[in-house]
């Protein structure tokens, strides 16, 4: 007697029923996922993004402020240098005049005697 293996396989492999409550357990998992998503949804989902954006803006503003401060310090130093040069120039001028006056004879008539 021959046995049809393929028919036996089909009989042996008819679908098995999942354990009781299988679909309900999937529904519960889906519900848990939805609740977790809802808990993370607005406004909380935007909190990390807002924090990151604030940090970036803060860094950019700080950098700009630093640049402007350095620029103002440079301008101030330039003004002070010009002032110092001006004062030095005046002092040199005064000294030159003093030296010139001292080397000139007191009475022009005494020059020939």
């Amino acid at each position: 007697m021959t046995i049809d293996l393929e028919k036996q396989l089909r009989d042996a492999l008819r679908p098995a029923a999942p354990p009781e409550g299988f679909a309900e357990r999937i529904a519960a998992r889906i519900e848990a996922v939805r609740l977790r998503r809802r808990r993370l949804s607005p406004p909380f989902v935007w909190v990390p993004a807002a924090l990151a954006a604030s940090l970036v803006l803060g860094f950019v503003a700080l950098h700009q402020w630093e640049l402007r401060r350095e620029q103002q310090q440079g301008l101030q130093a330039r003004r002070e240098l010009i002032e110092a040069l001006r004062v030095t120039g005046e002092k040199l001028d005064l000294a030159y005049r003093g030296v010139s006056d001292a080397s000139r004879p007191a009475n022009p008539d005494d020059a020939g005697t």
Binding site: I3, K7, Q8, L9, D11, A12, L13, R14, P15, A16, A17
Partner: peptide
């Protein structure tokens, strides 16, 4: 563990053995 939902005709022992061999 792979017992079908409804019993079919044929030899249940043979079907069990087939599932185990599979």
């Amino acid at each position: 563990p792979g017992v079908p939902a409804e019993p079919a005709g044929g030899d249940p022992l043979l079907q069990r053995r087939l599932r185990a061999l599979l």
